[in-house]
């Protein structure tokens, strides 16, 4: 699979690394640091990183909750509720760039940092969760874990592509002033049911 190269590049590097390696030292086991996995903790962290949380009494309220929060003329992509733009893995960039709102299902929320795990299978298109102007992540309240240790233990296989999303896109590259909406979504709302 490697592109043609001087045949020895890889071997030379590995040999140099092997020559420099110190005596082997053991790999430590990582304890399962637990902690608070409550909705309150998650909501507090999410708010602190610029995200918002909406509680749904049940999943059937999703469409009406979305309708209350976003203008009716938004171009919306979703596999969880009626959408105005159909998105598949083959959708082109120009179409994606016109999407105002994506509503997707996260599979796990992390209370210590407000992050939500979004696997590729739930994205419709890899660029959708970041190219849309706004993002709603739907999450089962039973899918909250305390820390990243529990999160990775539960995920186990990240698939072809997967992202922890923690609030809206942001930057502080100009004088450390926090600005929401750098290149990715301008807002991120977690709808917990």
């Amino acid at each position: 699979m490697s592109t043609p190269l001087p045949p020895s590049a890889r071997e030379n590097i590995l040999a140099a690394v092997r020559a420099g390696q110190p005596t082997a030292v053991p790999l430590p086991a990582v304890p399962a640091f637990g902690g608070d996995d409550s909705v309150e903790k998650f909501a507090g962290l999410l708010a602190s990183i610029g995200g918002e949380m909406v509680m749904l009494a049940s999943l059937s309220e999703l469409a009406s909750a979305v309708a209350r929060r976003y203008p009716a003329d938004y171009h919306t992509a979703s596999d969880l509720m009626p959408a105005t733009v159909a998105v598949t893995a083959a959708t082109g960039g120009e179409t994606l760039a016109g999407i105002d709102l994506a509503v997707l299902r996260g599979t796990l929320g992390v209370a210590e940092n407000g992050a939500v795990w979004l696997p590729e299978a739930n994205m419709l298109h890899r660029a959708l969760p970041v190219v849309a102007q706004h993002l709603v992540l739907v999450l089962d309240r039973r899918a909250l874990v305390a820390t990243m240790h529990q999160a990775y233990a539960q995920i186990r296989d990240v698939g072809g592509y997967g992202v922890f999303l923690a609030g809206p896109s942001k930057t502080a590259d100009i004088e450390q002033s926090l600005v929401i909406g750098a290149h990715g979504v301008r807002s991120l709302t977690v709808m917990l049911h």
Partner: peptide, 11 residues
């Protein structure tokens, strides 16, 4: 507490 995007590229 974490970066906004922690992205895993496998395939």
């Amino acid at each position: 507490p974490i970066t906004t995007y922690t992205s895993h590229f496998t395939r």
